[in-house]
């Protein structure tokens, strides 16, 4: 006879706990996946932002007339200033094909980029550990290339980075809430079961069963039920994740948010059912131990 049959033959928690765990597992996997990919994207933005600057040299006047040869001279001057500045590791002018590639997300493939009044862009690689003195650089450029516009991505993306890291904190908070909800669910289910089986527990206690004999059966059973439920929750979340990934790729938004996960992140998601089951195990141990104190 399996020990677990001592209590649980007619227990409604057999269904309640797996269903609730499935829901929790499903939500936890989706939130965790979103959080991890968002974290990756932010890290990527930060890496890009902290490692580069852009200098724009307009190719047309404000009136819309081509500026001609002066553009090339300004580019050369700007490159000289940039390459001689402290903290700048390198500066290169983006080619027309690179410009076209940059515009694809906004204009789509095959757009006639060369006909647009786009400025020339100088990609400046900076040492993120010794970031250049932006005010000085601006002054130097303004003195010799007044038309140049120095664009620090860091300044522009900072509010977005703040928003994103706030989002990650929110995801962490939601995960904590989810864990608390899972714990309360297990406490409720366990107490219901304990009340329903009080006569059995009392009898077994009177026969000399120690607390561990009873708690381990409840804990092992709730571990199994929670693992089973949350594993199905994980399986259910996979097609949703695939769908979101497909939509993001389709909308070519993956340069903003890349939902692809690496192997470590997949392992973390795979640990969600085990984590929830362990949480159920520990919560059950505590709940049953507290309950058994009513017996002498």
């Amino acid at each position: 006879m399996k020990q677990s049959r001592l209590f649980f033959s007619t227990d409604s928690n057999r269904l309640f706990l797996p269903w609730m765990s499935m829901l929790m597992g499903f939500i936890a996997v989706l939130i965790l996946a979103a959080g991890m990919s968002a974290y990756d994207s932010i890290t990527n933005w930060q890496r890009v932002v902290s490692g580069s600057l852009t200098v724009q040299i307009p190719t047309y006047t404000e009136a819309g007339d081509p500026r001609g040869e002066v553009v090339n001279r300004e580019i050369e001057t700007a490159l000289t200033i940039l390459r001689s500045s402290t903290g700048v590791k390198g500066a290169t002018v983006l080619s027309d094909s690179q410009m076209t590639e940059l515009m694809i997300p906004w204009l789509g493939e095959g757009a006639a980029v060369s006909e647009l009044p786009l400025p020339k862009l100088i990609d400046v690689m900076v040492d993120s550990d010794h970031y250049p003195d932006m005010a000085q650089l601006k002054t130097d450029l303004a003195a010799q290339v007044p038309s140049a516009v120095l664009d620090s991505h860091r300044l522009r993306l900072e509010p977005l980075l703040r928003l994103s890291s706030g989002g990650i904190k929110l995801i962490g908070f939601i995960l904590i809430l989810l864990a608390l909800t899972a714990s309360f669910t297990v406490i409720y289910a366990t107490r219901t079961s304990l009340t329903a089986h009080e006569h059995i527990i009392s009898l077994i206690h009177m026969m000399g069963a120690n607390d561990w004999f009873i708690t381990r059966q409840y804990a092992a059973r709730n571990f199994n039920l929670t693992f089973m439920g949350s594993f199905f929750g994980l399986l259910l979340a996979l097609p949703i994740m695939a769908g979101v990934s497909f939509l993001i790729h389709g909308a070519t938004l993956d340069f903003i948010w890349n939902p692809a996960l690496d192997i470590k992140q997949w392992i973390v998601l795979g640990c969600v059912p085990v984590g929830l089951a362990l949480l159920a195990f520990v919560t059950t141990l505590k709940t049953v131990s507290d309950y058994l104190k009513r017996f002498l």
């Binding site: 206690h205 009177m206 026969m207 000399g208 069963a209 120690n210 607390d211 002498l296």
Partner: peptide, 11 residues
């Protein structure tokens, strides 16, 4: 508590 459980096994 644990000793009481052991004692009960003799009853």
């Amino acid at each position: 508590r644990l000793d009481r459980a052991k004692l009960r096994r003799q009853i």
